[in-house]
Design a protein around this nucleic acid. Structure first.
Lengths: 136, 136
DNA sequence: GAAATACATGCAACAGTATTGCAAAGGTGT
DNA sequence: ACACCTTTGCAATACTGTTGCATGTATTTC
């Protein structure tokens, strides 16, 4: 288990520390995107800033991606293997207005839009909101 | 001019006050989406909270819509005439990573996604990021 | 037109999230 | 063991958004 996680971290050139293994584990076992606060809640005595910087490191190395779902807190979820967060790697996210959970719709790529002349497409944030099947 | 604005406000059941006319004017003459802070900057001695509540009133009555472009500050832009901010009224927004300006791509509707079973589509936020034609 | 009522505004304070500086702790290589 | 670099914890702070309350302004009612 720990070995598996370390491998994932090393694949992304992230030195595996206890903290990072734990944060990875939390992101992995929860099947939804989590905010900094939500991650903090799953630990007893871990500094917010440490988690914050851990997430930043993860994000810089494309191990996780961030989602701004409009709730005020940025959420984080694991990237798929080999993801480089290029336009081609992007997928749609879904925020349930009832339970507040944000899910990755990993098999739903963000559609390429035909932008106006001379506008480049570097990245995108596409969040669909509604009521999820659980809350229906 | 003032008459035109009052008409727009009244169409949306918003009582036209001096404040509201001014905020509307600012949103109208800038052709991009503005944050609360940016709107505040265009006045000399107007309370943030007043503008905040004005925007809230506008939004509740579908005169403006808000965009969360991931920069940390919500931005606001005028709705098209007759807009009710339904899924059908939504359009894509564009954030330039260089100049930081956010534009409405009004003629680019948010594509309807085929969501997983029992997930409803109530609204969406679709922001494309890149370099705009001005900054290229 | 004056009194009563409702609504809008300004001020101040506060809440939540994100972020940074700095020092201590931990690990790595020589 | 020592020097070096990275990570972590603590504290403080910035920024945006939000609310309570008092005051001012407009609108209605008589």
């Amino acid at each position: 288990m720990k070995g598996e996680i370390d491998k994932k971290l090393k694949q992304r050139n992230i030195k595996p520390t206890a903290m990072r293994e734990l944060v990875y584990e939390v992101l992995d076992k929860n099947k939804k995107a989590l905010s900094l606060y939500e991650i903090e809640q799953q630990f007893d005595n871990v500094e917010r800033s440490t988690i914050f910087r851990t997430l930043k490191t993860f994000q810089d190395n494309f191990l996780i991606h961030s989602i701004d779902d409009g709730t005020g807190a940025v959420k984080y979820a694991l990237c798929d293997e080999g993801c480089t967060c290029d336009p081609d790697d992007l997928h749609v996210h879904y925020l349930c207005n009832k339970c507040g959970q944000t899910h990755c719709l990993r098999d739903m790529p963000v559609p390429k839009m035909e932008l106006p002349q001379d506008f480049s497409f570097e990245s995108a944030n596409f969040v669909v909101k509604g009521i999820c099947s659980n809350c229906k």
